[in-house]
Design a protein around this nucleic acid. Structure first.
Lengths: 200, 200
DNA sequence: CAAGTGACATTATCGTATATTTGTCATTAG
DNA sequence: CTAATGACAAATATACGATAATGTCACTTG
């Protein structure tokens, strides 16, 4: 109607994200999304199996665009020490989540919800992130900056150990505490666990 | 009625816990608790300011009895290495939470709820636990087993870094994953961060 | 007067009739 | 044959009066 080209998933996601932002996840119906696109709601079911699938797809895209891509850039950079880059990577991850929670509370709540139910999507997102960390760690090991170890297992451990600072289940604690102090403690401990002891 | 001695807080907590277990937190009213005690519900308000306060008190007592006390025993023991004792302490904490979540789901849900709202109670419980860990760590430092550092800050960092395995916000993940593998990775990393490098 | 009561106002929950939304599918349009 | 429709049944949500729970307090009781 608005457009005669066949409707794409991306278009639907754009519309869904826009409506979700405007009305909040509780007040958006699939009819609302269809209205924005100028199609009937039945059409959306040719592209997404359910409303939940649509919401998950919106979340997945957000995670990819706003979390994975920016972090990818940091992981791919070759400047500075591995420790600094690892720290920057974590700071960026954590700051990104905090910003999201603070400035886009409704969308964040939806993400937290999806995290509990859409195990697949989250697992693959986390795998991607851990792969990025592993790249940084691997480089640190090659340069002799970090102790030899399985970079992927180390990445896994660091990701787990910093959950409190980036997992959505902990939002409540982020706002009520001094931003960096507890993370600083954990960082120092983790770092001293991975650095090579005969470090120059 | 049932008893002519003045009603004590402990008695009320006993009754409340019993009813909470029987009916679940959603279906228990303060009238139900009063009924078990054979008093009017008004009486309970002479001892607890609100229903929330009563639920918090039940949770607090549970945390003390079932978590803090058993762990205290481990922290106070003087046998074996500090690393082994620290590991045992963490294993006990984690296993305790898992057991609670699995075998007493409704009470656990109440605990998770309280964690979000009753900041004071949880903070003081966590402080107690961190004090216990600090004792173990301090001993490790004195024995030369661990690197010199602030034992309380280290305890803090280890507690934070292991949140994923004992914080109630993560229940969902406990059941769906292989029990010990991820923790093992984190433990190794943390341990290598605290052990003295010139360890015999 | 310390301990407990129970009627009362306030607040939350329940049941249910009503309305919306989700999800399906036979049908239309190109 | 692909894309889209819209009427429809089933599942959910909403509104709202009825019912129950929470929290207060002037009052009894030993």
């Amino acid at each position: 109607m608005t457009n005669d080209l066949p409707l794409s998933k991306e278009q639907i996601l754009d519309a869904a994200e826009q409506v979700l932002r405007r009305f909040g996840p509780d007040k958006t119906s699939v009819v609302d999304v269809a209205k924005v696109l100028g199609v009937s709601h039945g059409t959306l079911y040719r592209h997404f199996a359910s409303k939940a699938a649509l919401r998950e797809a919106v979340t997945e895209r957000w995670l990819h665009r706003s979390v994975a891509i920016p972090l990818e850039d940091i992981a791919a950079r070759k400047d500075g020490s591995a420790a600094d880059r690892l720290r920057l990577w974590l700071d960026t991850l954590i700051a990104g989540k905090r910003k999201f929670a603070a400035e886009d509370a409704e969308m964040f709540a939806m993400y937290a919800e999806v995290t509990l139910h859409a195990v697949e999507i989250i697992a693959s997102h986390v795998d991607r992130l851990m792969g990025q960390m592993a790249v940084i760690i691997e480089e640190g090991i090659i340069k002799g900056e970090f102790k030899p170890a399985s970079s992927i297992k180390t990445a896994n451990a660091i990701f787990m150990a910093t959950s409190r600072f980036h997992h959505p289940a902990h939002v409540a604690e982020w706002s009520s505490e001094h931003p960096n102090e507890p993370f600083e403690l954990v960082w120092e401990l983790l770092l001293s666990g991975i650095v090579s002891s005969h470090e120059s």
